[in-house]
Amino acid sequence: MKGVPVRIESYRRGPALRVILDGVELLGFEGEYLSTVLMANGKMAWRRSLIRGERRGLFCGIGICFECLVQVEGRGIVRACQVRAFDGMRVRTDV
């Protein structure tokens, strides 16, 4: 059974926001990194590796492994765990 990350209820977060991922709207909160938004919305993997095409997701969480890459409109390819989500952000995966 594929496990889905879940937001902890005892946290009070910033205002809600929308991230548009591959054309689909995802719910996020101000202060969340893109990786949090992706994972909280059920995505554990959003990229394929260079040669083998393996599915890859977050590994180090601190911005040094470069596995969690996404493409943010206007900013190019960034690490999802280092970029904070903002309302209306347009993001593409499988980059």
Partner: peptide, 20 residues
């Protein structure tokens, strides 16, 4: 390299710093 494998620090950053 499977999605779902991460460092302990990554899990900690998610839980403590992002409430996830």
């Amino acid at each position: 390299t499977l999605p779902g494998v991460m460092t302990g620090g990554a899990a900690q950053a998610l839980v403590v710093g992002q409430g996830l």
